[in-house]
Each structure stands twice: as C-alpha cells, then as structure tokens.
C-alpha cells in the first residue's frame, strides 16, 4: 500500500516537474536541463557568465512554462470539480460561459481601445459577469440544479458569442486579427506580469476547489441524496463554481482560451487512479499541467514557426478524448 501510494505520488509530482524542465529547454535557442541550476545561482549571486542564457531562461522560457503549467493545472482541477458538481462527465468550465465572456471583454477592449480598462481586466470582468448571469438565470426557476446550470450556461455562451460576432463585424480589420489571436490563446506572448497577475487568484480558486473535494464528491450523488446527507446543495454548488470561475477566469485572461485540457485531464485521471474522490482533484491538477506543457512544447517545436497551443491542444485532445470516452463508455451507460 505504502509503495503504491508513493509511486502514485512520484508519478503525479515527478512527471509534471520533468515535463516542465523539458518544456523550458525546448525552443529556437537550445538550453540543456543541466544549466538551469547554474542560471539560478548566477541570478542570485548577480554574476552573468551566461547572460544570453539567463535572458532566455528568466524572461522568456520560465514565465511561459509556469503559465502553461498553471493554466493546465487550473483547467484540469476545475474541469474535474465541475464534472462532479454538475454530475456530468462532459462538462468543462467553459460551459458556464466564462470563455465567451472573456472573449467579449477582450474584444471590447481591443476593438474600441477602451483605455480605462486593459484587455486583461476587461476580459476578467466579463468572464465573471458571464458566470454570474449563468447562475442568476439558473437560480430563478431551476433552483441551481445541474441541468438548469448547464442550460443557462449554454444560453449565456450563445449570447456572448453573438455579441462577439457583432464586435468583430464593427471593428477595424487590424483589431479583428488582434481579437482572433487573443482568443486562440497565446502562451508565447506571456510575460512575468501575466504570471504574477493570474497566479494569486488561480491559486485561491484551486485551493478552494481542492478543499471542497468531499463536498464535490457528495454533490455528484445527485441533489436529493446530497441534501439527505446534510449538504446545503445550492450554496455549496455555487461555492465550487465561484472558486472554479475565479481560477479559470484569471488564467484565461492571461493566456487566452485553450480547450480540451479541462476534459482530457479528469478523464485520464479516472482511467489511471479511478474515481477516488480524494485523489481525483490533485491528480487532475497534475495531469492538466502535464498535458498543457506537452502540448505547448509541441506547439513551439514541431513546425518552422510556432503553432498556437490551442490548435495543438485540440488536435491532440480531440482524438485522445474520443479514445478515453470509448474506453470508459460502459461506465456512463453507453
């Protein structure tokens, strides 16, 4: 038992760290993993024998790798949490309307140079606005049941998609391409500012969701049973959604809308560790980070120029998801 537990632990902590190191070393300017400790020592002691390597490592590779890991971890853990909370294995955080909301917020700022609001702040506010609308609509008559939340989310997403199209039609062409590339995700343009801005909220959201792991498990038993087990269903479901939304909105704001991690990570986790209510969330977090680091490493290395990571995530994610669903179809009554 102890050995198994340790090997699982190693797998879910060691592999992402290894992939993180590899991710940092991959790129146009080659870095070897062994130089990384040297760079840290030089940075701390203020010497600069490897000035160029330092520049590449600290200013470009490290923030990008951290952002990719943070994004993947956030989407993995919130995807798993929301699938359980909403009792639906096909739910992703985006179903709550966050992605469309963020896109509209960013588009408004990019198209009309709002000035007062930076793109990031605008995207973040609109992402949360969309979730707020979703919860409001579903609480009016649906009493926050899973189905009513998913339906409300779809309605809100569609609404914001419409607004997004309207903005794109009315915006100037050069702004439109900025909007499109914002939406496609841009880990390649991530700076320390992005990392520092999104990390605190993402960590708060992740921590909240992980701490609520047992409530999330009980919520997946269905509303009546959760109630009979003493859970305040509406309030605790909203708590999970609020934590998840904070985390997702903050990373989406920094890196754009990258899909599939949120579906792949929880399903892969269930295949590897089973649906263990205590391990599911931490393991999904780790797998999410790993998946996105791998996808982003591919994005920057497979072609002469960079492919947006969102495209790679989709190209790898869609077939992988199909495979995972086929493997677990009998579980969901297919």
């Amino acid at each position: 038992m102890g050995f198994r537990y340790n090997s699982t632990f190693l797998l879910f902590v060691g592999v992402p760290l290894l992939v993180l190191a590899l991710h940092i070393c991959i790129g146009k300017y080659p870095l070897t993993p062994t130089i990384i400790p040297t760079l840290f020592i030089e940075k701390l002691s203020g010497t600069s024998k490897h000035a160029l390597e330092q520049l590449v490592f600290f200013n470009i590779r490290l923030p990008r790798a951290l952002m990719a890991a943070l994004f993947g971890a956030t989407m993995g853990v919130t995807g798993a949490a929301l699938q359980s909370t909403l009792k639906n294995p096909l739910v992703s955080p985006y179903i709550l309307g966050m992605s469309s909301g963020a896109a509209v917020g960013a588009a408004l700022s990019l198209a009309f140079n709002l000035g007062v609001l930076s793109t990031e702040v605008s995207a973040f506010m609109f992402a949360l606005l969309a979730v707020f609308l979703t919860l409001t609509i579903s609480s009016v008559r649906g009493s926050l049941s899973p189905v009513s939340i998913v339906l409300a989310g779809i309605i809100v997403s569609a609404l914001f998609q419409g607004v997004l199209t309207l903005i794109q039609i009315t915006a100037r062409p050069e702004n439109v391409s900025a909007i499109i590339s914002w939406i496609a995700g841009r880990l390649n343009a991530v700076s320390w500012d992005h990392v520092l801005l999104s990390t605190p909220l993402a960590l708060v959201g992740i921590l909240g969701v992980v701490l609520l792991r047992w409530r999330i498990f009980v919520l997946s038993m269905g509303d009546e049973e959760a109630k009979a087990l003493g859970i305040n269903v509406g309030r605790e479901r909203v708590a999970v959604i609020v934590f998840a939304s904070l985390a997702v909105s903050s990373v989406v704001t920094a890196a754009g809308i990258i899909g599939w991690v949120c579906l792949i990570a929880p399903h892969l986790t269930r295949l590897i560790v089973g649906a263990d209510p205590k391990k599911l969330l931490p393991a999904s977090l780790s797998l999410g980070a790993t998946f996105l680091l791998v996808a982003d490493a591919l994005a920057k290395s497979v072609w002469r120029y960079e492919i947006p990571v969102g495209v790679i995530a989709t190209l790898v994610g869609a077939p992988l998801f199909l495979y995972l669903l086929r493997r677990s179809m009998h579980v969901y009554g297919g």
Binding site: R213, W214, L229, G274, D276
Partner: peptide, 29 residues
C-alpha cells in the same frame, strides 16, 4: 432513495463513506 443513477465509477467503500458527511466539517474528508 428509490432510484439512484450512478454518475462516476466510485469505489463502493467511498460511496458508503459518503454517509459520514453529516459528521464532517465543510473542508474535510
């Protein structure tokens, strides 16, 4: 309940441990 539709393939013992929920604080397992 009369009908229970299982959602995810949880271990039986975890499902039964769900019965301990009323004795747990919100943040504990």
């Amino acid at each position: 309940p009369q009908v229970h539709s299982p959602s995810f393939p949880y271990r039986v013992i975890d499902v039964v441990a769900g019965g301990r929920t009323p004795y747990l604080s919100v943040l504990t397992a």
